[in-house]
């Protein structure tokens, strides 16, 4: 008798334990809740890697549902359809949009719903997840996608920049080609010859000093003779009467002019060698500077021939002299 009572209690206990377990499972899977859900479709052209079924759906940071299914749109191979299950009373508006956000460093993602202004209409809800006419939520690019696009744009710009730099280098290379170098060298040689000729001219001017003095002396002698001739003309004019008076006055003015010229000549006004020397001094200075400049240009061209890229970037490094320290 006692044995039978024990088995009944044992059976009741096991049965009760089974019921409690079933209730716990149902409670955990939220069957106990009498919560209803509605379905929306989210369409995106982005990659949905990291977004799985059961991934949380959040509205303004509040968890309002989960991802039900994901599949590639059969009519558009570049877009993905995500069916989301959202609590029935959640206000999903027509201007609500979705963003795929990463969940920390795990690589998983969740769907963040944002937007949804007060004045906007509620989006059409669907109770069946296979309903083809369910409301569609559109997506905005995620942060990663924005960064990705920005990098794509930067990479494109860098490519363009490199292409332009390449063109510039090609054009500079064509500028610094052998023919142009030869032309520049020829120009420099011609300049050097011109400089030498100028120096010779200035030297010969200075060496002609004696001859210039001789010419000046001859002018003075000539002037004296003209004065004497003028005097003779004057006498003639006196003898010649009134008609010659005008000739006489002209002769006087010529005589005065000649006297003035003589004075100026004696003052050194017509000292051509001195004038030439004064004029040549700045020229000589310029020639010295030009000579130095030509030397520098020759050195520069030689360096450029050795390393044409030095025109843009100083690449060639010279070895220090023995014992040379910085």
């Amino acid at each position: 008798m006692e044995h039978r009572v024990r088995y009944v209690f044992l059976g009741a206990f096991v049965f009760g334990l089974f019921l409690a377990g079933a209730w716990a499972i149902l409670w955990q899977s939220k069957y106990a809740h009498n919560e209803s859900f509605v379905y929306f479709k989210v369409q995106t052209a982005e990659t949905v890697s990291g977004l799985n079924e059961k991934a949380p759906v959040k509205l303004l940071g509040v968890s309002v549902g989960e991802v039900s299914t994901l599949y590639i749109n059969p009519n558009d191979s570049e877009s993905v359809d995500i069916i989301v299950k959202v609590k029935a009373k959640t206000p999903i508006k027509e201007d609500t949009y979705a963003i795929i956000e990463p969940q920390g460093i795990t690589g998983l993602s969740y769907l963040l719903l944002e937007g949804g202004t007060r004045g906007a209409k509620l989006l059409k809800v669907s109770n069946d997840k296979d309903d083809e006419n369910m409301g569609t939520i559109f997506t905005k690019p995620s942060l990663l996608s924005k960064v990705d696009k920005s990098f794509e744009s930067i990479v494109e710009k860098i490519e363009l920049l490199l292409e332009s730099a390449n063109k510039v280098l090609e054009s500079s290379h064509s500028f610094v080609n052998e023919n142009n170098m030869k032309y520049v060298e020829d120009i420099l040689k011609d300049s050097a010859q011109a400089t030498k000729s100028l120096a010779n001219i200035s030297k010969s001017l200075a060496s002609k000093e004696k001859e210039l003095d001789l010419i000046t002396n001859n002018i003075i002698i000539l002037e004296k003779e003209i004065i004497e001739a003028a005097k003779a003309v004057k006498n003639m004019s006196i003898l010649g009467g009134d008609t010659m008076q005008s000739v006489s006055s002209s002769a006087k003015s010529v005589e005065q002019t000649m006297v003035l010229l003589s004075e100026k000549a004696s003052e050194g006004m017509f000292d051509i060698s001195s004038v030439a020397k004064d004029a040549a001094l700045p020229l000589i200075n310029s020639l010295y500077e030009m000579e130095i400049l030509i030397g520098q240009l020759k050195s520069f061209i030689q360096n450029l021939e050795n390393s044409p890229s030095d025109l843009l970037y100083k690449k060639s490094m010279q070895a220090p002299a023995p014992g040379e320290e910085l």
Partner: peptide, 10 residues
């Protein structure tokens, strides 16, 4: 070697 060279940094 009787080669003419220049100081690099002076």
């Amino acid at each position: 070697n009787n080669l003419r060279k220049n100081y690099a940094y002076h």
